[in-house]
Design a protein around this nucleic acid. Sequence first.
RNA 1: CGGGCUGUAGCGCAGUGGUAGCGCGCAUCGUUCGGGACGAUGAGGUCGUGGGUUCAAAUCCCGCCAGCCCGACCA
Length: 422
Amino acid sequence: MKQTHLFSKTVKDVPKEETSINAQLLIKAGFIDKLQAGVYSFLPLGHRVHERIKNVIREEMNAVGGQEIYMPALHPKKNWTVTGRWDEATEVMFQFVGRGDKEMGLGWTHEEIVTPLAKKFVHSYKDLPRAVYQIQDKFRNEPRAKSGLLRGREFSMKDMYSFHISAKDLENFYDEVLEAYHRIFKRMGLEALLVEASGGAFSKYSHEFQVLTENGEDLVYVCKDCGRHQNKEIVEDDNCPDCGTKRSAKKAIEVGNIFKLKNRFSEAFKFKAVDKNGQEQDIQMGCYGIGPSRIMGTIVEIMHDDNGMIWPKEVTPYQVHLLALATEDEQVKDKANRVYKNLKEAGVEVFFDDREKVSPGEKFADSDLIGLPLQILVGKKTATSSQVEVKSRDGKNLDFTDADNLTEEEGLAEAIHKYYQN
RNA sequence: CGGGCUGUAGCGCAGUGGUAGCGCGCAUCGUUCGGGACGAUGAGGUCGUGGGUUCAAAUCCCGCCAGCCCGACCA
């Protein structure tokens, strides 16, 4: 992708009222644009990151047997009256009247949709277990949207729902998803703690995945001795219930949440299946949420420095940022174009700053702001040789920069591919 | 929903009663070119919105809308 063709641009100043780091950096770099409080457009670079995050989640959900579907966001009132949550959810749910006085609402969660859906196909223990998930925008009428992508009124969510013939089977699957969640966050460079929390409107208890950061809005009691962490909402005293250690409250961002719904929704929708003995059983359900857009904001909160963002390899919008530094020099220009072409042909995802009459300083500043893991510099220094200069955004040394055979033609693409495989 | 602050050019801001400014960005030309270069010229605004006061309102008063922060809330 040539930077001269990119839809968005970086800006030098962001509104001073945007105080959260993720909003500031993502807006400044042209990754997102705010339409209204808690509602954002994802621009090409931001969209690519968002999609990569979703793809990591997809891979891990598919790996535990989840099947991707896509449900409507526009819900009829009738499904919600079954569980009584139409009236309970007036605060959080956007509700309105459509044509013919029909009452409808926008989906803020999908138990009321997926349960009757599954009921159409599941009648016997032989049809179980099943897990379906979707990645879709959720709508929540938050009293106060804030902190950029961290708390929005429209935001992306992966929500998976699982169906089981027994509580035991639910337990097993729940544990598998829990492990899958750990893998997801690890792949994206986030250290997420497993935290016990209340079940809110869904069940008595749940597990949250929390990333510790000062900019978080949750408070987690962290036990450094035995690792039993609990959300403040269920904590009665500072001491760990397991080992008795005095725990400290730390701010955190909730990036995932999983619940055992048990028979709460299957009972409401009269969703049963016969077991091996021919006896009808309430279906046991679990639900598993994770917010890609919130994760994007969290990654920026955690991984940045004074100059800008630093994307982890798994979710970077492009693999390398190629900078043509002295475009008035025809040799430099030709060489940069060649490197771009060669890398692209070798399957490297290249973002190419081909802007002319833009000073090197501005290119460096923009490149650091955008934060791709690798920067390749083509300037007068190396114009007459076939060598290129490679820098890592995080400042760590690259073991391949010294390789003698690392030229624009040979070795470079290979080294980049290798870098991304680690 | 309570408290505080804010709304003026694409973005950031100044302008407290006399008819609209600065910086960035943008356009054209020239110079510059390894950590956000410089000069010249130019385009761009019903000052959030509705009403009121006044000879005169971006500026004063009232209502409304929108945004940010703190709190409450947060499946």
